[in-house]
Design a protein around this nucleic acid. Structure first.
Lengths: 120, 120
DNA sequence: TTTGCCTCTGACGTCAACGTCAGGTTTTAG
DNA sequence: CTAAAACCTGACGTTGACGTCAGAGGCAAA
C-alpha cells in the first residue's frame, strides 16, 4: 500500500507518517520512482506508535521500544527508562480517573436541575 | 502567602503561577508595592488546575470550568464541552491502561531472563 | 495526451505551557 | 545600612508533533 492508504487505515496524516519515518519509528520500501510502499503489518505498527504518543511517550523513547521489540532484548538503562515510562503511565491513568470523577462532580453541580440537590 | 511560597506548596514554578493568572485561571490580591498575595485556598486551586492540565485540558477549557465552579451553573454549550472533555479523559484513561499492559508485555520480553520463557 | 489526484523533498509556520533573561524594585537577614 | 533573596513587568526562546506551502514529478482513466 502507498502512504495515502496507510494514512486512511490508521487515522494518521500523511505528514505524520513521514514524520514517524523521519524519526526512525517506521520503515518503508520504495518503488522505482521513490514512492513509499508499506506491507499490511504497517497498519498495526502505526496504531501502536499512536497509542504510545497518546500516552505521552516522546518519539525518542518509542524508538528505544522499537529496538527492544525487534531485538527482543534491551540494555539495563533502556529497560529502566521503559519501566519508568510504564510507571508514569500507570500513575497518570489513575490520576486521570480521579480527575474525571472530580470533573463529573463539577458538571453535576453546574447542571440546571442540580439546584434541587443543592437546595436539599 | 507570596508567590514563591505558593510555588513550593504546589510544585508549580513561579513562572507557571504567573502564567495561570495571565490566563485568568487564578486571582491574586496585591500588596501595596504590587506583589502577589494568596490566601491558603489558592493551594488547592492550583493543584486542581495542574491536575486538569495533566489531563490534557487546555487552559481555555479550564477557564470555562472555573466559571462553572464559581457560578455553580454553565451554559448548555459550555456543559457540552465539559462533558466531551470528561468522556475524552475517560477514554484516554482506559486506553492508557491497555497501553501500559502492552508496554509491560514488551518489557517482559526484553528482560534478559525472559529467554527461558521464550525458549520454552 | 491531458486531466486530476497522489506523492516526493525541503523548508517554514504553529501552538501551548512554560523557561529564561534583562533591568529594575522590594523584602528580609545580619 | 547593606547585601542577598524574592518579586515585578516585559519580551524573547524552547520543545514536540505535526500543518502547510512551494515546486516538481508520478499514475490511472478517458
Amino acid at each position: 500500500m502507498r502512504i495515502g492508504e496507510l494514512a486512511k487505515a490508521t487515522g494518521a496524516s500523511v505528514r505524520a507518517l513521514r514524520y514517524y519515518e523521519e524519526q526512525g519509528l517506521i520503515d518503508s520500501d520504495r518503488s522505482a520512482s521513490g514512492q513509499r510502499l508499506y506491507g499490511p503489518a504497517a497498519v498495526e505498527k502505526v496504531l501502536w506508535i499512536r497509542q504510545l504518543l497518546a500516552a505521552g511517550l516522546p518519539s525518542r523513547v518509542i524508538l528505544k521500544l522499537k529496538k527492544c521489540d525487534t531485538d527482543g532484548k534491551a540494555s539495563p538503562e533502556e529497560l529502566t527508562v521503559l519501566e519508568a515510562e510504564r510507571d508514569r503511565i500507570d500513575k497518570l491513568a489513575t490520576d486521570l480517573i480521579t480527575t474525571r470523577d472530580r470533573l463529573d462532580h463539577v458538571i453535576a453541580n453546574s447542571t440546571p436541575d442540580a439546584a434541587k440537590a443543592r437546595a436539599h
